[in-house]
């Protein structure tokens, strides 16, 4: 195996150990560990057996296996970014809802006749 294959294999192994540790600490959900485990197993497979990418590349109509991996990598990054954006959006909305509760709780005594001219 070439050095790059060893680097990819070790990286995938470390990443998978981190995923399992995250799952044990309750930071990664069951469907999360499935997704990440499949992903890092695929990375390990490509590292050990690079020619395997040719099979999928030919099937997808791409000449080189490395190109297929690159394209899939880009797609994965875009997918993760999109997912991250959605989560951020949800957190922001939840935060705004909480802030609203606090603002309404601390609102001045509710009256139908607040006067903009103060105590007159």
């Amino acid at each position: 195996m070439h050095p790059i294959q060893w680097i990819m294999l070790v990286f995938a192994a470390i990443a998978e150990i981190a995923v399992v540790a995250g799952f044990r600490r309750g930071k990664i959900a069951a469907k999360g560990i499935f997704f990440w485990t499949v992903l890092w197993l695929l990375v390990g497979l490509v590292a050990v057996w690079p020619d395997s990418t040719y099979i999928f590349a030919r099937w997808a109509g791409i000449t080189r296996g490395a190109d297929l991996v690159l394209y899939l990598g880009f797609l994965a990054v875009f997918f993760l970014l999109f997912r991250h954006t959605l989560r951020m959006e949800k957190i922001e909305r939840d935060l705004a809802a909480l802030v609203r509760v606090l603002a309404l709780r601390d609102a001045p005594e509710q009256t139908n006749q607040p006067r903009a001219d103060g105590d007159k």
């Binding site: 935060l95 802030v99 609203r100 606090l102 603002a103 309404l104 609102a107 903009a116 001219d117 103060g118």
Partner: peptide
Amino acid sequence: AGAVVLRHPI
């Protein structure tokens, strides 16, 4: 200025 003020802490 006489307005009723609600405050968002952030």
